[in-house]
Design a binder for these strands. Structure first.
Lengths: 278, 278
DNA sequence: CGGCCAATTGAGGATCGTCAAAGTACGTGG
DNA sequence: CCACGTACTTTGACGATCCTCAATTGGCCG
């Protein structure tokens, strides 16, 4: 966590009503007087938020600095942007930084970490900014007191978000062949995790559905499958698929898997590999 | 909700241990004997799940039938696939069905509806399948008793998922120009919602970041911006943007917006259009 | 003023979509 | 059991989109 007091590049950032000039842990932070309160929180909840000290402190981040690092342990908190803007990113399988999204005032960040132990994304300030740090404690008596079932529920939600992020990552950064390969490998892995054969399975969806999911056309899917067949990587007959060379497919997929298995993909270690520019 | 007793296309679906042949609301459903229990739930939680009657009933769905419809009101429940497979879809701005994802045994569905009132996606069985219906009630004493702050928190998470889904939708189905336009309009809308000018603003991120986020190259972004400029739709100078013809941009974006504003995109009414089966 | 990074511009080419048609699987009905 | 119709899948030719590579311009900071 970084803080600072310098401020520049303030084209769109009106000076906040009253700013504490460091990570301020003042007695009580009043959400009802916050200029972005109506975006960040329903009006009916601002007084509640103030009462239970939802915002524990405000943090200033200098342009270019991290609010939180990728892989960093998650504290029991998330953030709301008070002013300024951020980008969040994660690393693709090649270890390159890839944008997940942009966040401006009123937006929330690190919501996807609720059920995780480490940050999946890093957050960098695009300009000098300030965020409100919000603790989960105000939402539950105490996080440690969460019943395991609830905890698991949160984890599921976080992974749902992670799944969508990974799907978007794949769509943004890969070519058709790589995308399809990653898709097939994903299916294979998921079946394997459930005790089915990972090398011989049936695609229950149509080519149209696969194409749609991968941002392609059915014709392309068909041609690409033929291509993989020609390379001796798999056997395809209609919807029946047999993986012949899993390692070869892995190589083609280049570390991507889509969609990730439902519950078995823990915080993955981004391993460095061949780097290719955008 | 549909149920049936016929079963076919069972290439990958071993007969579940003991199957109730309709939507069965038997006294207690035992998760510890379920074959997918280890995928769907941590082993340490299966007995807890059984005790608090987490799974209220099991539902059979015939191939091609909906588990839930798009736009349908959300009951306080979500689903786990017991066997079979599903696709989830939503409609693009043109009203066409677009795949969100595929789900096989052990996967969860409708998790993204926790904080919503209506289903954002429809779910269709790709083969004869069975799901476990799980109530939120086991996670909290009673959903109605949720404190407003918690409710809002859930809503935020759901919208986070929705945001990611929409981003993926955009990436899959649009061309570069449409994508960039949708991006700019999204920025504009978000600024407007925060009281800033929606017609004149500054892009705080680099062209590289924009390109990365949209699955393009910086060169393309640059060219496309020039194109929009040539069409008289906006004025660009470095990172400063002035929208000249918002209506024209809307037309180009074709109903897409990326990313959706943080909190103002409520449950959209899906208009029925061409439907095509699995 | 000079250096560095970001942004632009240009030329060429690979990828993948579009359109059209033929082939195949599957379920239905005779 | 076989014929038929429908929907899905494959195959082919062509073209647009967008990436790649390279060089130039512009802006910001020391």
């Amino acid at each position: 966590m970084q803080e600072s007091q310098i401020n520049m590049n303030r084209l769109l950032t009106p000076p906040p009503a009253e700013t504490h000039h460091a990570a301020s842990a003042g007695p009580k932070i009043d959400c009802s007087t916050c200029l972005v309160g109506r975006i960040c929180l329903p009006a009916s909840l601002t007084s509640t938020a103030t009462d239970c000290q939802m915002v524990q402190r405000r943090i200033k981040i200098v342009r270019g600095d991290h609010l939180y690092q990728l892989g960093e342990p998650v504290g029991d908190r998330f953030y709301a942007v008070r002013y300024g803007s951020f980008k969040t990113y994660h690393l693709d399988p090649g270890g390159l930084q890839r944008i997940v999204g942009f966040h401006i005032s009123g937006d929330h960040m690190a919501l996807d970490t609720m059920g995780l132990t480490n940050h999946r994304c890093g957050a960098i300030a695009l300009e000098d900014s300030e965020v409100c740090e919000i603790s989960y404690d105000c939402l539950h008596a105490r996080r440690e007191a969460l019943i395991p079932l609830q905890r698991h529920f949160y984890t599921m939600l976080s992974k749902e978000i992670a799944r969508e992020q990974d799907a978007a990552l794949l769509l943004r950064n890969t070519r058709a062949e790589q995308r399809l390969t990653a898709f097939l490998l994903g299916i294979s892995l998921r079946y394997a995790a459930r005790g089915y054969s990972s090398t011989s399975f049936r695609l229950h969806m149509s080519r149209q559905d696969i194409a749609d999911f991968l941002g392609l056309t059915p014709e392309s899917v068909s041609r690409l499958l033929f291509g993989l067949k020609s390379q001796g990587l798999l056997e395809v007959s209609g919807r029946a698929v047999t993986v012949l060379d899993a390692a070869g497919l892995q190589r083609l997929a280049g570390g991507y898997v889509s969609p990730p298995p439902a519950d078995e993909a823990e915080t993955r270690q981004p391993q460095l590999a061949t780097a290719h520019a955008a």
